[in-house]
Simulated assay, not measured.
Amino acid sequence: MSVLENLFDSQDLPVSDRVEAWHDITASALIPNEFSIDRAAEFRASLQAVDLGGAQVTALTYASMTSRRTPQLIRQSDPEMYAVGLILRGEQVILQDRCEAPLGVGDLVVYSTSHPYQAVVEAPQGTAASVVVQIPRAMVPLSSNRVDRMLAARMSGREGVGGLLAGFLTHLATDTSLYRPADGQRLGGVLIDLITAWLAHHIDASDQTPAETRQHMQFLEIQDFIRRHLGDVELSPATVAAAHHISLRTLHRLFGSHAHGATIAFYIRRQRLTRARRDLADPRLSARPVHAIAARWGFLRPADFTRAFRTQYGITPSDYRYQIDDFETGTQN
């Protein structure tokens, strides 16, 4: 299965049916809301969703509009969930509990289905886009009173824990790879841990976060650090441990618990080889020598790179590049 399932596209419906259909699909996939749409005849929207072990992930595009969750709707049905939103395109404003969050691309926000709110979307040049995660409050091991103080507050998704969360959500929204059903539970666990760590970071409540969640978060931060430093020839288990102020023993234990048996040295080598193989297959880099691509990803000795590449992929880097070139030439012909 792919991560997200296509549930709605306004272009599949007659213009006269689009707004009502949007109201119905958002009530089902998200939460019931009231909508005000000025130019209904021009309304465009799409919705993709998946349930990841209790975390409902929805990727949406939509034209300018205003949505409201009213006290009456809350009385009719309240699943008691937090909603975390990431803005991918356009501008929005979330208002809840006398707070107002003006949001742009890359911003994160949390709001509650148990409190009235209003969302105003401005997309004058087309459609806005966002990813929304809904998780039951009971799945967030933090004080609800403290989390509620963060409702409708603009938070950055460009750095730190917020950057990790935003990157994960963006990947879920854009990835077209196929996954096994069992992967959904694992992805859901990662997502809930990320959201918990992100909330705890902003309310300074890391002491309330379960130890397993903190360890998983540290593992994700280390993975992110490694990916950002693959070209550094000094990158090694020792430098990774030093950068995160932990011992080598703790680092190896962390990978043993969270990397499905892979060692950190294997992970670094595999990531470097993956990046190098991608560059070898890139026609824009066809004039770049193999040894230069190897050096870009931390392999200073061409012989070491060739040996590692052949061991991993069963072919030398040069033969792999020729194979890709022959395939591209045949396709064009």
Score class of each variant (00 low, 15 high):
V120K: 14
V120Q: 14
V120L: 13
V121R: 12
V121H: 14
E122V: 11
E122L: 13
A123L: 08
A123T: 09
P124M: 11
Q125L: 15
G126S: 12
G126I: 11
T127F: 01
A128F: 05
A129Y: 08
A129D: 08
S130P: 00
S130N: 09
V131D: 00
V131W: 00
V133T: 05
V133M: 02
Q134D: 05
Q134P: 05
I135Y: 04
P136V: 04
R137D: 06
R137Q: 15
R137A: 11
R137H: 10
A138C: 05
A138E: 10
M139F: 09
V140S: 00
V140T: 09
P141C: 02
L142A: 06
L142K: 00
L142Q: 02
S144D: 14
N145H: 13
R146C: 05
V147M: 00
V147S: 00
V147G: 03
D148G: 09
D148C: 05
D148M: 04
D148S: 14
R149C: 04
R149L: 08
R149Y: 08
R149V: 07
M150Q: 04
M150A: 04
L151M: 00
L151A: 07
L151V: 10
L151R: 07
L151I: 04
L151F: 07
A152N: 09
S156Q: 09
S156I: 11
S156A: 14
G157A: 01
G157E: 08
R158K: 14
E159Q: 13
E159A: 15
E159H: 12
G160T: 08
G160N: 01
G160S: 10
G162M: 06
G162K: 05
G162P: 03
G163C: 11
L164T: 08
L164P: 06
L164R: 09
L164H: 00
G167V: 03
G167W: 10
F168G: 02
L169G: 00
L169H: 01
T170R: 10
H171A: 13
L172C: 09
L172A: 06
L172V: 02
A173R: 04
T174D: 09
D175Y: 07
T176N: 11
T176K: 14
S177W: 03
Y179H: 12
Y179D: 01
R180T: 01
P181R: 07
P181T: 06
A182D: 13
A182F: 13
D183H: 02
D183P: 06
D183S: 14
G184C: 05
Q185C: 08
Q185P: 00
